[in-house]
């Protein structure tokens, strides 16, 4: 599965970085994640409030997006976080639709479908949940069986010792480009491990914990998270963590050389420049 390096005319080296299975899983994941996120937000706007515990304490949600009419009949959007209320008209709570302020928790571009349609959001969410889960299982099986988790994702002791320097390098947008770029750097490894082994499974388990049908089969599942409404809140927070992961991931791709990165995830080939090997090590 590993293929030999190719030396390019200009002295740079094309290394085979991502096997086909990983590339395929990555792009399926891109589509599935996008659908899960946007259809999930469609489901969220049907009741844009989060709670702790088994049931919903409607008068004191942990988080909510609401609309209120002023005495002069203006619609004002509010986002309330832990009792602190912020006016968010135009973005959250009240948005402009067809020229009129409309009560809606999130902008239309964030939801699938863009208009309000809980039934369709649910149908898409529960189909792509399978796509995501089967793809995730395939990715995990491939990486665990091939020993790739230990080899590619698990940080070495030396890497962990140099984690401070890696953070400093990232902060200055200096990335390994030489021989060190053959491997993931320590921050990449840690964030990929967190996404694959913490955020992903949490997403699936909190999702399952919300299902009344599965609650009958696995009554302990919602209680692990502190009740069904807590599970729903965690589901939302972990989703936002995955959004943050994706945003940082895309920024890093842009900063580290988007064409090289993109090519490596399409053809598998990533170009390193040994002449620049001394730049960074971690």
């Amino acid at each position: 599965m590993t293929r030999p390096d190719r030396r390019l005319k200009d002295g740079r080296i094309s290394v085979y970085r991502h096997p086909a299975a990983v590339r395929l899983a990555h792009w399926i994941n891109v589509v599935a994640f996008l659908v899960m996120l946007t259809s999930g937000l469609q489901i969220f706007i049907a009741h844009p409030a989060l709670y702790l515990g088994d049931d919903s304490t409607f008068d004191r949600p942990l988080f909510s997006m609401t609309a209120e009419a002023t005495p002069d009949n203006r619609l004002v959007g509010y986002t309330t976080i832990l009792g602190k209320r912020f006016e968010t008209t135009g973005t959250f709570g009240v948005i402009e639709q067809a020229g009129y302020p409309t009560e809606r928790a999130l902008p239309t571009w964030m939801t699938l479908p863009p208009f309000r349609d809980l039934a369709t959001g649910r149908v898409w969410h529960f189909f792509f949940a399978w796509v995501l889960a089967i793809n995730g299982a395939f990715y995990l099986a491939y990486n665990l069986a091939g020993g790739r988790v230990g080899r590619e994702l698990w940080p070495t002791r030396a890497q962990l010792r140099a984690v401070g320097r890696s953070i400093a390098d990232h902060a200055r947008l200096r990335f390994p480009r030489g021989e060190a770029a053959r491997r993931y750097n320590v921050l990449q490894k840690l964030s990929y491990l967190a996404a694959v082994f913490v955020l992903g499974p949490l997403m699936i388990l909190t999702g399952m914990a919300m299902s009344p049908g599965l609650n009958a089969a696995l009554p302990w599942l919602p209680e692990v998270f502190g009740g069904r409404q807590s599970a729903r809140t965690i589901h939302f927070l972990v989703a936002m963590s995955l959004v943050l992961f994706t945003v940082v991931h895309l920024l890093m791709v842009l900063a580290a050389g988007p064409l090289n990165e993109l090519r490596s995830m399409i053809t598998g080939r990533y170009v390193i420049d040994p002449a620049r090997g001394r730049e960074t090590q971690a």
Partner: peptide, 12 residues
């Protein structure tokens, strides 16, 4: 029992 609405909220 807990009543779960399709919208996402629950009441007992």
């Amino acid at each position: 029992t807990r009543h779960d609405c399709v919208e996402g909220w629950s009441c007992i």
